[in-house]
Design a protein around this nucleic acid. Structure first.
Lengths: 153, 153
DNA sequence: TCCAGTTAGTTCAGTTTTGAACCTTCAAGG
DNA sequence: CCTTGAAGGTTCAAAACTGAACTAACTGGA
């Protein structure tokens, strides 16, 4: 029974530090590619992706915020930027007049397609190809649990 | 032989998405705790930690930047903030007059000690305790490789 | 029907981050 | 000694982010 606020074991520390480092570096790499190939930030790209797989290519702002894991005000900002770039459009929601649809435009869909190949390549080269198939499965399994657990609070 | 820019396999996609989600959520949690217990941001805390384990509790700005994985200008800003808060002090470097030491003050060391228990608790509860010992080892192993690989470019 | 409590989204002011431009100092080779 | 190029840091203006305050609209109960 270890002290819940005492030092981490070396192996635990290693896992945490590797997680942080890999996160920083991977995100940096992804950001670079997205900016280069499409002038997008990573959060912006995630917004486009979520809209791309949504029913009718649209989502309400608050659902979108939850999916992308971003604050409401931040999403407002990002969607405004994407709207300015013509990649997303805002529409009124008939059934709830407080709500706002964020909808992917054809240009937005085209942008996804243009940027995605490079994005996939980055994820492959930096993450997937460095891991064995077993590690990939275990990582997905373990980190899904971590995320799930944090969501359920 | 899969197309290097084609879609990811479902399990690969799952690993990537879990990695992103866990990263977002964990960071959010850590940020919350640090702000609450010590008025610090996560990057600021990482700066203090690196200084805390360094020889003589001090590092040059550029070494510090590399260790914390932030840009030079960002570090300049953060160290200025920490200096303003009295947690860090800048000193001239005799052997290289371009260089600047960032040095942990006693108040900075005290702040680490004050904040660390809560920080550890967060990491434990959100990450460590959700994983089996095997998963922890494998995560450390695998993600270290990912980070290392990205550093070596 | 009304009101109290929620929820959706935006706004705003203040803070942080970015990236390029800019000094200064160093190091290596003529 | 002089260059010349690279390295250490800072600066600045523009862009992005944060959290709290706010408006408007929904919901359920008295």
């Amino acid at each position: 029974m270890t002290d819940p606020s005492g030092p981490l074991e070396p192996r635990e520390l290693r896992a945490w530090m590797a997680f942080l480092a890999a996160g920083h570096l991977l995100d940096h790499e992804v950001e670079r590619q997205l900016k280069r190939d499409g002038g997008l930030s990573h959060p912006e790209f995630e917004v486009l992706l979520k809209l791309g797989v949504a029913d009718g290519n649209r989502l309400r702002m608050s659902d979108l915020a939850r999916l992308v894991m971003v604050s409401k005000s931040r999403l407002t900002y990002q969607v405004t930027q994407l709207e300015r770039a013509g990649l997303v459009r805002r529409t009124a929601c008939d059934s709830d007049r407080r709500a706002v649809w964020a909808e992917l435009t054809p240009e937005g869909a085209a942008t996804i397609e243009r940027v995605r190949p490079g994005h996939r390549r980055v994820v492959r080269e930096a993450l997937i190809e460095v891991l064995t198939p077993d590690e990939i499965d275990l990582l997905g399994e373990a980190l899904s649990r971590v995320a799930e657990r944090l969501l359920a609070r």
